[in-house]
Computed example of a mutant assay.
Amino acid sequence: MPLSRRHSDRMRVAINLLTDDPFNPSGAHWFWTRVIPEMTRLLRDGESFHLMVSPKSRPTHDYGSSVGYITYPWSNEKRNLRTLSEHVYSPLRLPLSGIDVLNTLMAPIVKSAPKLVVHIKTLHAYTTPHAISPPARLYRQLSYPRTARLADAIILNSRSLVDEVQQYLKVDPAKIRLIPEAVDHDLFNPGDRDEAFAHVAKRYGVRENFVLFVSSLWPYKNCEGLIRAFAAAKSDLGDRQLVVVGPGRDVEYVGELKALAARLGVADDIVWVGGVPLEETVHFYRAADVFVYPSHNETFGLPILEAMASACPVVTSNVTAMPETAGGAALLADPKDADSIADQIVKACGPEGERLRARGPERAGEFTWAATAARTLDVYREVHEGHTV
């Protein structure tokens, strides 16, 4: 029986936000806090978003009356219980809410909505398996292939990730939607370098001009390689410090980094800032002589764009998605070669600096959350088209 006009125009989308730890927000958290408000502005009559949250994560996703909420007992502060509830509760709860399209990372064991959009941001279970725990790795390696088969569309943020997905999951190319991420230009933009330096000096104890690293301290982010490069370039960098901004989620690894700095004789030249609110990072980008992002594997590399938008010269890796994101507006180095990183740091602090400061905002300006949101919403509409009940 054909749908009435009123029902065919309805589209209720559930967005799974449970995979983020509300006490340690990840890049995925910042992605959704930018994209959801942009998408809600574009909704047509009969279209609505329903966010899957826990009591602890809901305050971190406050969008007022523009969205609905579906409350689960746990988010990623209780990873195992969160995973269990996604599989057990979703087949009951989502149909009760009349959900037409589910946007998630892993498909529930039992089909929970007529249409499934899978949003993959990393494939660490395959590309950097030692970066995650064995149980999590096994779960993802078992779940990804099935999820890819069931998906109506799979959203990926770079050509590099597309290649990885095809290598490990062998997805039907017709399902893939390439949608780059973006940068918040209201927050990240060129500003007064002297004011920014005064801010980080007063609040965080930075004393000298500095080389900057911004990232959670996971081994694959390669802060180790940066410390070795900083030590190798020290004679050319003068009194510059290395400022490390980001939470130390692996306490043992952070201890190893500090021990390495001591062995290399640069411990007194490193400022360990720790995690800071996102809005504080712009002061570091504006004040830094160079931002270095020598990761071994990235599917997009959002901090690259944040630094560029803030007119900070960038040195990043010549592998995976980083050259794609940089788009010729950064210096590239071999992340496995400390001397390669060191050489590019020295260039960025010297003759290449002004060119990179000018080119960075131009490149970052090509990426907006409004465009990302519009294309993501189009995917929901595309898979929903023709849905019947």
Rank of each mutant, 00 (worst) to 15 (best):
L3K: 14
L3R: 15
S4K: 10
H7V: 14
D9P: 15
R10S: 13
R10W: 11
R10E: 12
I15W: 01
N16R: 00
T19E: 09
T19C: 03
N24L: 07
S26H: 12
W32L: 03
W32C: 03
V35Y: 01
E38G: 09
E38A: 01
L42H: 10
H50W: 01
L51A: 07
H61E: 12
S66D: 11
V67D: 06
G68R: 15
T71D: 15
R79Q: 08
T83F: 02
T83R: 15
E86P: 05
S90E: 04
L96I: 12
A107H: 02
K111M: 08
H124Q: 01
H124P: 01
I132R: 02
S133D: 10
P134C: 13
P135A: 14
R137V: 00
Q141A: 00
Y144P: 02
R149P: 00
E164Q: 13
Q166T: 08
Q167K: 08
Q167I: 06
L169E: 00
A174P: 02
I176H: 00
I179W: 00
E181L: 02
A182D: 01
N189M: 12
P190Q: 15
E195P: 13
A198H: 08
K202Q: 07
R203K: 11
R203E: 12
Y204N: 10
V206W: 09
V211I: 12
W218H: 10
Y220D: 09
I227H: 02
A231E: 08
A233K: 05
G238S: 08
G238P: 07
V244D: 11
R249P: 06
V251N: 14
E256V: 14
L260K: 02
A267Q: 12
D269L: 05
G274D: 07
G274F: 15
V276E: 05
V282C: 13
A287V: 15
A288H: 13
A288T: 12
D289R: 10
V290R: 14
F291V: 04
L302Y: 05
P303V: 06
I304A: 09
I304P: 03
L305P: 04
S317L: 02
M322P: 14
M322V: 05
L331F: 09
D334S: 06
D339W: 07
G350Q: 07
G353H: 15
G353C: 03
G360L: 13
E366A: 04
A374H: 05
A374V: 02
D378A: 15
D378F: 10
Y380K: 02
Y380L: 05
E382Q: 01
G386Y: 10
H387V: 05
H387Q: 08
